[in-house]
């Protein structure tokens, strides 16, 4: 009996990425879908009404000027696909938001929750008839309100800090937190707290060696946690024309994997470090992310009772 998992992470609001992920479940005949966190976008794009049906918005610094309802929809769709949130505003609304950070923060949260709700509605509609399970976990970039949105859906499970059986043989546990990043994101925590939370999920496992761990942050110095080194102004450091890279994963996650040796551990967080590595008998995978290009990056894993039969990183 084989279970086929499809795993992806770091959607960062990209509509194209998520819709491809759901579609990929059918294309690759997956039984179980697992999302590894960081599902919400990083920015809202104001599209400001200039009067007479003409709007102005900036995408990646480029001025966009839709002047018809169709052009406006097209721009909104493009913005959705790259992971941002288009918000159509009158000039006074834009000024009001810009002068009121609290208001803007709330609007942002509304937009993020709305998109996750739309996604999960779509997922439930598509996956339930085919009995494909969906485990949807937030990541360190996602606000706590996202958990509440996931909880609204009976068919979708959030494995953060919990244990589920994904088939007759394999348990799934998850952890959405990350060790502290330079951005001090919503779910960044200190290493000792991360270690404590990992111990908690480890204790939930009945058969650790057959388990699947969905842990947002990758293990330290594993090769799937390497990203460009940043200076104090968060700019990439280079030497001789080369980007300086360094491991930024969590030592606690590495200890957890070495101690419990689950069959499979799934990670995200470091978009540019897609790959796979063995830590003892554990196959650790980071599917990576190119959400801004609307590209789906995912991992297909064939699970047999006591082994990972095969795996493949895909993009499309």
């Amino acid at each position: 009996m084989m279970t086929r998992l499809l795993y992806a992470s770091d959607f960062h609001g990209s509509e194209a990425f998520f819709r491809k992920f759901i579609s990929a479940a059918f294309q690759y005949q997956a039984n179980v879908l697992i999302v590894g966190g960081d599902v919400t976008g990083k920015a809202m794009i104001p599209i400001v009404h200039q009067g007479k049906g003409r709007f102005i918005g900036y995408l990646f610094g480029r001025k966009e000027e839709p002047d018809s309802p169709e052009a406006l929809e097209r721009l909104k769709r493009t913005i959705n696909n790259v992971g941002f949130y288009p918000i159509v505003l009158e000039p006074d609304e834009a000024r009001d938001l810009e002068n009121n950070p609290d208001k803007m923060g709330k609007r942002f949260e509304q937009e993020m929750c709305r998109r996750v709700r739309e996604w999960l509605t779509l997922a439930e509609e598509k996956l339930r008839p085919r009995k494909i399970s969906l485990f949807f976990m937030p990541g360190n970039d996602d606000l706590a309100s996202i958990d509440k949105v996931i909880d609204e859906f009976e068919y979708v499970h959030n494995p953060d800090g919990k244990r589920f059986w994904i088939d007759d043989d394999h348990e799934l546990v998850g952890l959405s937190n990350a060790n502290m990043t330079p951005w001090r994101c919503a779910r960044d925590i200190e290493e000792d707290e991360l270690e404590r939370k990992l111990e908690q999920i480890g204790a939930l496992l009945e058969f650790p060696t057959r388990a699947v761990a969905d842990i947002h942050v990758p293990p330290f110095a594993s090769g799937i946690d390497v990203c460009p080194q940043l200076d104090k102004d968060l700019r990439i450091m280079t030497e001789g024309g080369q980007v300086l890279m360094k491991p930024v994963g969590s030592p606690s996650v590495r200890c957890f994997l070495e101690k419990y040796q689950p069959l499979l551990s799934l990670h995200g967080h470091i978009h540019e470090a897609a790959g796979y590595v063995r830590i003892g008998r554990t196959l650790a995978i980071n599917a990576g992310s190119e959400y801004a290009e609307g590209i789906m990056k995912a991992a297909i894993i064939n699970l047999e009772k006591d082994r990972v039969k095969g795996h493949l990183l895909v993009s499309g």
């Binding site: 920015a43 104001p46 810009e98 951005w183 994101c185 968060l234 700019r235």
Partner: peptide, 18 residues
């Protein structure tokens, strides 16, 4: 007035042209 960004990871990162 180009985008309203929130505090999240990996916002501004670029290798210089040099």
């Amino acid at each position: 007035r180009k985008l309203y960004a929130r505090k999240s990871s990996g916002l501004v990162r670029t290798i210089g042209v040099f």
